[in-house]
Each structure stands twice: as C-alpha cells, then as structure tokens.
Amino acid sequence: MDAVRDNWRDVLYAFGLTVEISVLAGVIALVLGFLLGALRVSPVPVGRAVAAVYVRLVRNTPLLLIMLITTFTLPVLGLRPDINLNDWFGIDSHNRMLNLNFFVLCATGALGLYTAAFVCEAVRSGINSIPIGQAEAARSIGMTFGQTLRLVVLPQAYRAVIPPLTSTMIAMTKNSSVAVGVGVTDATFQMRKLNNDNGDQILQIFVTFAIGYMILVFLISAVGSLLERRAAA
C-alpha cells in the first residue's frame, strides 16, 4: 500500500548510488579544479589559456549534454559499453548500490569534469582575495611558483575558498540527478520508477526523495561549516 515503505531497500540503494557518484565526482572535481585554478594564475601564458578555455567551454555546456557526450561518444572512440570497473573492485554487477558500470562511470566522469570548472573558479577567486604582496614577498625570497602557491597563497586562500566550494559540492550532489538521463539507476531514477508504479502516492514519493537529497546536502554543509570553523581558529 505504502510505496516508500514497501520499497525502502530500493530507495536506500538508489541513494547509495547517488552518494557513490557524488563522492567520486567530487574527488575528480576537487583535484582537477585545484590544478586548473593553479594553472589559471600560473606565470606560463599557455597554462593560463588552457585553464581559461576549459572553464569557458565546460561551464557553458549543459551538464546533461556532457553526460550524453561521454556516454555516447566513448563507444564510438572504441571504449565498449561493457567496460566497467566492477571486476577491478570485486563488485557484483547486480549490486545496485555500488556499481561502476559503464553508464555510472560516464555520468560520474562527466559530473566531475563539469564541476571542476566551478571548483577552478572558486579557487581562483580565493587566490585573488589574497593581496598580491604576499605572492611578491614569497617570490622575492626565491620561492618557485609552486612553493609560493602551496606555502603562502593557498593556506591563506583556503578560508575564502571553503564557502563557495561547499556551494559547488552541494550543487554537484543535486546535479548528480541528471545522470538519470543516461540510464543511471540513482535516487532520481528510483523516484520516477516508484511514481510510475504508484500514481496515487506521488506527493509522498516526491517528499521522501526531497528529504533524502536534503540529508545529503546537510551533511556537506556540516562538513563545510566544520572546515570553516577550523580554518578560522
């Protein structure tokens, strides 16, 4: 009778996949985003140009389009859709919570690449919030560009970067729902499925999934606030 209660296991698994995609995409986005952010302020003009072009291209393309591109062009380039990482990690391919099948990988990669552009801009704005004299002083005692960034600029920019990065990670987690468009069975997919099967309970189902996403977002905000308080101390 109660669609959510009867299918709670499926709901939980679906959110598990959403968490998996968000965590993996988050790692990709943070690593790539910081590298791009560093390139964006590098003394090498080519580096700055590459990062700027990346941000401009990726940030101005709809996420769904990027997911469609990864999902449907990689097979054309010779990567067969039966490629997945399940065997590597010993994951059963019927596992709905932890599944690294081709579609999940493509969606996760696309989400990570897309979010990296926003991380890059958050990092860049944080770096720009530090007075230029700090970097000049670091360079003047003989630090290389990397040392200047790592030892002087980024530790100070860190505080300024946490709030926008928290927002970016929240947006990314919610954006993971777009993966339903390329056949990933995440939380949003499960929500649609339940709605299709239980047309009389759509409100309860919508609210349940909204609460689920909210819980994930609260967790990210909490981590963000914690890091912010630690940085202020």
Binding site: I141, G142, T144
Partner: peptide
C-alpha cells in the same frame, strides 16, 4: 627555477611589509 634562484640572492623590502600573514 633560475629566476627563483636569482631572487633568493636579492633581498626585497616592500612599502607594505608583506609579511606572511598566516
């Protein structure tokens, strides 16, 4: 790297001090 090495041999004192704030 060569420029960084050279700068290590040239001390610089700024109008606004620019001590590392952290």
């Amino acid at each position: 790297k060569a420029l960084a090495a050279l700068r290590a041999d040239v001390g610089m004192v700024f109008q606004s001090f620019n001590l590392f704030a952290h």
